[in-house]
Amino acid sequence: MEMANLSVLLVWAAATALAIAMVAFAADLARLSGARVAERDTARESAMVGAGAGRVRGAPAPGATAGRGPGDGPEGDAVSRKGAGIGMSLSWLAAAMLLVAIVLRGIASGRTPWANMYEFTLVGTFVAVAVFVGVCLVREARFLGAFVTGLGAVFLVLGQNAFFVAATGVQPALQNYWLVIHVGVAIIATGILTVAFVTSVLQLLRDSRDEGTPWLGRWGWLDHTPSPGTMEALSFRLNAVAFVLWTFTIIGGAIWAEDAWGRYWGWDPKEVWSFVVWVVYAAYLHARTTRGWSGRRAAWFVVAGYACVLFNFTGVNLIFNGLHSYSGLS
């Protein structure tokens, strides 16, 4: 019980860290955006403007105030990226706290800690944040920060309030090493798809802004995301990895179903939606290589695919009454 409580506390702490990280990242984007506006404003001196714009337009986050220090960040010409730096540190911290929370939960229940919706939410959020900080190690992807951490915080709060169940053992159908493999891989895929989804949404927004969509006119921060082509490339790479993992999830699920339920495929609602997700992402891969469908249209497939992923996780568990009703909620 001790450990279970500590695990819950850590989840709240991680949610808080992610929320603050989101504010810091948002402040960073606002600051960049301000810098851009200022660049155009030839009346002012550019050095002053960088700091000034941050103060005016930045959200009231620690990042925004800390960013006003004398040293502008090494990367930005005139703009400090301290907000992004704070966001990154908090993301790392949140990932670490979540990891510990998950391990403690596993110890408290005496089994693999991903057997119900609550635990799935914890691990999925951890993977999404970990993929984000991991991607940031190899390339510049901090523009994703506000959205990944924001989604992560929402997921954790939702998990804590809507999906929480006490740590305990599982029924016989779940006592299998495939629980570790099949569900584990599914969660990793979901976490990666989350980051890819954020990337594709930003790609669509940026693309629309570049084309002059009126309501995006005020979202100056979008100019500081990489080009739509670069974001599409990043999203594809993540989606490709996740798609292979998802394929494995389905195969692993079928092997397990063969052992547990006496058939490898039975069009149970969860199976149907896993199939739908798979087909939508297969369509995405085809769209990317089909003339007239690459770019924007392909990105919409990512949005549709991720919607199906979310529905598969929430709707199918809570609405339909299938063999997969392992949410632990009744």
Binding site: F275, V279, A283, H286, T290, G292
Partner: peptide
Amino acid sequence: SMRVALMLLMLLAVAAVPGSI
């Protein structure tokens, strides 16, 4: 053609849904 394969894939996804509802 790729375009028709794409359409059929989309159709397949849509056609699978009623069976879960």
